[in-house]
């Protein structure tokens, strides 16, 4: 607490790290999508193309959450 600049920097880094906790949910989501997609492909290999397209689509939406968290973290560190 003696050095306010260092204190603020430390809090910024802490905040950026906490912002990245949003990646937990995205990771779970991407994993669920991949698991479901691979299971579906295993059961019905003929439909692999359609399943893969939709799987990547779902993964992209789930991953977007992690990217938002990342952008927030980057803004906290480098801009704010």
């Amino acid at each position: 607490m003696n050095d306010p600049v260092a204190f603020v920097t430390a809090l910024k880094l802490l905040g950026a790290g906490m912002a990245m906790m949003g990646a937990i949910g995205a990771g779970v989501g991407v994993g669920l999508a991949a698991s479901g997609g691979v299971q579906a492909m295993g059961r019905n290999p003929d439909a692999a193309g359609i399943i893969q397209t939709n799987m990547i689509l779902g993964m992209a939406f789930a991953e977007a959450v992690a990217i938002y968290a990342l952008v927030v973290a980057l803004i906290i560190i480098f801009v704010a």
């Binding site: 992209a60 939406f61 991953e63 977007a64 990217i67 938002y68 990342l70 952008v71 980057l74």
Partner: peptide, 16 residues
Amino acid sequence: LSFSFRLFGNIFAGVI
């Protein structure tokens, strides 16, 4: 928003 931040975030994070 999601379109632009997805591409930007992925590529920028890759660079870093």
